[in-house]
Design a protein around this nucleic acid. Structure first.
Length: 984
RNA sequence: GCGAGGGUAGCCAAGCGGUCAACGGCGGCGGACUCAAGAUCCGCUCGUGUAGACGUUCGUGGGUUCGAUUCCCUCCCCUCGCACCA
């Protein structure tokens, strides 16, 4: 019967569903044997793709592994619907937006009839939960306890979040404050990126306003480079623009009309006194608040009244734009006169450098402009030049002497400090704005507004300290991520945790606001432990005291709720989370928040034990994108290849934390491999039982099996799913390939070996390919692989000697092959000569003395007989020194007990088969003596060799009737574990 | 720029101080099987070589070492994150 994944997988799926196999409850097993793995709950604003499939399969494989190890394992799932993405998607659907419709129809195969169901947020979410995620997860065979599902919009979940936020507020970890948000002036409402029509990628900037003065009137000039304030030579205003004089927080300011609304939204008291045309200010002198210098306000068409305050300061020494504008102004005396400015006054303006930077001369802006050959401020190229100057000055610019406490410092290091310094003194103010226009989908202009909001105080020192401790205690996989957590904790400021609208839980004390998604998903793993038993608890009973009792015990409430106390047992049984399988890009927010909230709300013993961070998925080498339709749906992949193939490919092609690349060709080949495995397995299952009558080669395979069990187990413990599955599958296939070549498979001993090997491998593979492995294991033994324990190495079959010996056989095979290839011959006889005993003695000496040529020679030369051999010994020692260096101590020790000659003799028939030749094995000494006898008989005289020592004991009895022969005198080339070879 | 990861043969990718010309997969070449194709199996896939070798390779340039793909430094290039988007 050939491999048919669809049929066999369907059968196992229903078996699992019917038996509720993966529903986990506290049972007799010890707390230490409870394992709780979680994965970020999916956000069903769209469908599931193959990248998600891996995300959820990694914890599944670990869960299955731990179950086989005897643990009680809980792997739950829920659904995250908080916030605006789902609402946004529904809005776009209802408006009939083509992009959205096409994604739904073409990418996710939503039928026309179904579209109507998607027009409410929860209807939309439900569809993707049921038809995509849940379905996909079940098809993949994920061992999830489905009783515990919930969504974050559920009433009871909200009660849980309410408890969490009330508790945090009480502990002083929430704080109210102002926070900049994107704000649509049309709808008079904050907007998210999804609500934007134009400028989706634009980030707002915090501009510094330098408060230039003219008498009592302030001209606030917006800049991103406050440190250049000492280099200001003049100001620019748009003569055509509309400006106002207004009272701002009690001061008299001149700003553009457009700036009024922005300032108002940014928490300034503002009252417009009168509107003025920009040109009225042209030619005026304003005073630099830092230097006290008077500078001229010049007209400039490039000034945008809708950017910042509509008045800008000019720093020609360090800004190419300003430099060019100044040059142009100087060149157009006519225009200056029209505005009543004496051109001589402008001509007199010279750039004032305020910092020095390598690669440029005194006036960086001028150098940059000149070296790039730019001559007009309207030229599009200055952008790049400006960027270059700004970057270099920011990272390398050293502030000049006038800067007092900041003199000699690099801009990058002191900008913030300098800004704060002058702000405190009242010379600077601040304003948020976008560097480019941003338009909402409602068509309104989007500006930055400051809004009252609630923050999580992630920069609270005590809280940080606890969290850092949680980071230290964590098993961070891979280890390199630990530093990223530490870094994130150091860097996090306050986090605004509410939004104006969206799905989710209302802020308990102000129901105008909703707790945002990253903030309502920090400790929900605790909710899984009780989710399936809440049905009978009315939501209104789930108050502070209820959860206090549940999480902190009976003492935490005056009149502890019985139900909460019962649920507490569940929570205590499963918590803490053993592993959270998440993604690299969540380290800097969600995962760190997860640690923060656990560190604060729970005892140390309940803190997360481990986090593994996963990489991303690519499709045919490119990033997946559901909006472009560049995705593979698990559904379709499983239909085509089968769930085991999908799982195996996802887990086997890279370690979890590495990126993986879904390539159809490789997935197809994975399926072929599994299919081949299936066929081979069936052959073993269908063959007669065999019996335990083992030859060396069987023992070799069994020894390799034990090695494999050991390394697969180690890899699984480190979450190295690729290493584990590679070893169990591909790695072992290589051994089997050798075994098939080497052994007579018809023997009962071989059949016994193959069955034993198959059984063990199926158990090792069961976490990865549960359908196939369970099925085959059941056919082989009557029990499924998941019903029997994870394999352990069997001491009886561990045998490093056999492994080392087999290696010698492989070496000889390779060496003979090489010689045959190079000489292009087809030998009829292959002769192997095993090194003489005295050579083994030299090897012993090298091992004893250490791999040092000089020392070894010193030792060896003590021996008269060896000394007589002269150069031969010297070069032998050289080779043996290398040999010893290249092998570890264990191997050398094992080799010491190996009888090399019998290894080859035992393998002789195998060699004969491989080379299709007669194979003869001799001892070097015996062969040599035979040669000497021949030659002495011929010449009737002793040559020099006759004087050589005969270290008696190594003389082997010749195996061939003809006696040992050494036609070409090759025997003397033999070295220990490297027999001399002669082909004829 | 800051933080993290990475650059290995035609491609993907393992190795992370010696058994490394470098696992494995894909692709390619040759052979077996077959009427044929596919699947499967076997061998080859840096160069040279009539004896198991030698030569040149693991982003660049240096260094440490008896020995470096593996350790240290320089530089170049790529990917990800850098916040109120989930």
């Amino acid at each position: 019967m050939s491999y048919d994944p669809q049929e066999l997988e369907a059968e196992w799926r229903s078996r699992w569903a019917e038996s509720g196999r993966y529903e986990a409850d506290p049972d007799g097993r010890d707390l230490d044997d409870s394992t709780f793995v979680t994965v970020p709950y999916p956000y069903p604003s769209g469908g599931m793709h193959i990248g998600h499939a891996r995300t959820y399969t990694v914890p599944d494989v670990y869960a299955r592994y731990r179950r086989q190890q005897g643990d009680n394992v809980l792997f739950p799932i829920g659904w995250h619907v908080t916030g605006t993405p789902i609402i946004g998607a529904v809005e776009r659907l209802k408006k009939g937006e083509e992009d959205q419709l096409s994604v739904l129809r073409d990418t996710y195969n939503v039928s026309e009839d179904t579209l109507a169901d998607l027009e409410t947020p929860m209807g939309y979410a439900r569809h993707f939960i049921e038809e995509h995620y849940k379905r996909g997860m079940q098809q993949l065979g994920l061992s999830i306890d489905w009783r515990r599902e919930f969504t974050t919009n559920d009433e009871r979940y909200s009660k849980f979040i309410t408890w969490q936020y009330e508790t945090l507020k009480e502990r002083g970890l929430l704080e109210k404050g102002l926070h900049p948000v994107k704000y649509c002036t049309e709808q008079e409402n904050p907007v998210t990126t999804h609500d934007l029509l134009e400028g989706e990628d634009v980030e707002y900037q915090e501009y510094t306003l330098v408060k230039f003065e003219s008498g009592e009137t302030v001209f606030p000039m917006a800049t991103l480079r406050p440190e250049t304030v000492r280099g200001v030579t003049n100001a620019y205003i748009d003569p055509e623009g509309e400006y106002v004089e207004a009272t701002v927080d009690g001061e008299r300011w001149v700003v553009s009309l457009e700036a009024v609304e922005k300032l108002e939204l940014q928490d300034h008291e503002i009252a417009v006194e009168r509107e003025v045309a920009g040109e009225e200010y042209v030619g005026e002198s304003v005073t630099n608040p830092i230097t006290g210098d008077e500078v001229l306000v010049l007209p400039a068409s490039f000034v945008d009244p809708d950017s910042g305050t509509g008045v800008v300061m000019s720093v020609p020494a360090h800004s190419p734009d300003d430099y060019l504008a100044l040059e142009e102004a100087k060149a157009d005396a006519q225009r200056l006169r029209e505005y009543g400015i004496d051109p001589a006054n402008v001509e007199a303006i010279e750039p004032v450098p305020i910092l020095s930077v390598d690669d440029y001369g005194e006036i960086p802006a001028r150098d940059a402009v000149e070296s790039h050959g730019i001559d007009s401020a309207d030229d599009p190229d200055p952008k790049a030049v400006t960027q270059e100057v700004y970057n270099r000055e920011f990272h390398q610019g050293v502030l000049s002497e006038e800067y007092g406490e900041f003199a000699g410092e690099v801009v990058e290091d002191v900008r913030e400090e300098l800004k704060a310094h002058f702000q405190t003194q009242g010379e600077f103010a601040a304003m948020y704005d976008f560097p480019e226009p941003v338009i909402s989908r409602a068509g309104g202009k989007v500006v930055v507004a400051e809004q009252e909001t609630w923050f999580l105080r992630y920069n609270d020192e005590e809280w940080q300290a606890k969290t850092l401790e949680a980071v230290e205690n964590l098993e961070a996989i891979p280890e390199t991520t630990r530093e990223q957590y530490t870094h994130t904790v150091d860097w996090l400021e306050e986090w605004p945790c509410i939004r104006n609208y969206g799905l989710g839980t209302r802020l308990p004390w102000d129901d105008e606001f909703v707790i945002e998604p990253l903030s309502d998903s920090t400790i929900y793993m605790a909710y899984y432990t009780i989710a399936h038993r809440l049905e009978d608890v009315p939501p209104e009973a789930m108050d502070r005291a209820f959860f206090d009792t549940l999480f902190y015990g009976p003492e935490a409430a005056d009149d502890p709720d019985e139900r909460a106390l019962e649920l507490r047992e569940e929570w205590e049984y499963w918590y803490p989370v053993d592993f959270r399988c998440s993604a690299n890009d969540l380290i800097s927010n969600h995962l760190t928040f997860f640690l923060y909230h656990h560190a604060e709300l729970f005892e140390k013993s309940e803190w997360p034990q481990g986090i593994t961070s996963m990489g991303m998925g690519l499709l045919e080498g490119e990033k997946m994108s559901s909006s472009k339709g560049h995705v593979v749906l698990p559904d379709e992949a499983i239909d085509e290849y089968g769930a085991d193939t999908v799982r195996f490919f996802l887990l086997n092609s890279s370690e979890p934390w590495q990126d993986f690349d879904w390539r159809a060709e490789e997935v197809g080949s994975t399926r072929d491999q599994l299919s081949r495995f299936w066929n081979r397995a069936l052959e073993v299952i269908d063959a007669p039982d065999g019996e335990r009558d083992l030859e060396t080669i069987d023992r070799w395979l069994l020894a390799k099996l034990q090695e494999t069990v050991r390394s697969v187990t180690d890899a699984m413990d480190r979450f190295e799913t690729r290493t584990a599955s590679q070893q169990a599958f591909y790695g072992f296939e290589e051994y089997l390939k050798w075994y098939r070549r080497r052994a007579d498979l018809e023997r009962p001993g071989a059949r016994w070996t193959l069955r034993t090997v198959l059984e063990t491998r199926l158990r090792l593979l069961a976490p990865f390919v549960p359908f196939l492995a369970n099925e085959l294991h059941e056919r082989l033994t009557g029990e499924s692989a998941e019903d029997v324990p994870w394999p352990e190495p069997v001491p009886e079959f561990e045998d490093s000697t056999i492994v080392v010996q087999e290696r010698l056989v492989e070496d000889v095979l390779e060496d003979v092959r090489d010689i045959v290839d190079v000489t292009d011959t087809d030998p009829e006889t292959v002769r192997l000569y095993v090194a003489a005993d005295w050579k083994r003695d030299v090897l012993e000496t090298v091992i004893d003395v250490g791999p040092n040529q000089g020392q070894v020679m010193g030792e060896v030369m003590q021996n008269d007989q060896l000394r007589e051999k002269g150069d031969a010994v010297n070069s032998l020692v050289g080779d043996l020194v290398s040999f010893v260096r290249e092998h570890d101590d264990d191997t050398l020790e094992t080799l010491a007990s190996v009888d090399e000659q019998s290894v080859y003799e035992e393998a002789a028939s195998f060699f004969a088969r491989e080379f299709d030749a007669d194979v003869e094995v001799y001892g070097e000494s015996a062969a040599r003596r035979a040669a000497e006898e021949t030659s002495s008989a011929e010449r009737s005289s002793a040559d020099s060799r006759a004087a050589e020592p005969r270290d008696g004991g190594d003389d082997e009895e010749p195996r061939e009737d003809a006696g040992p022969v050494d036609p070409d005198g090759k025997a003397s080339q033999a070295e220990p574990f490297r027999p001399a070879i002669h082909l004829e």
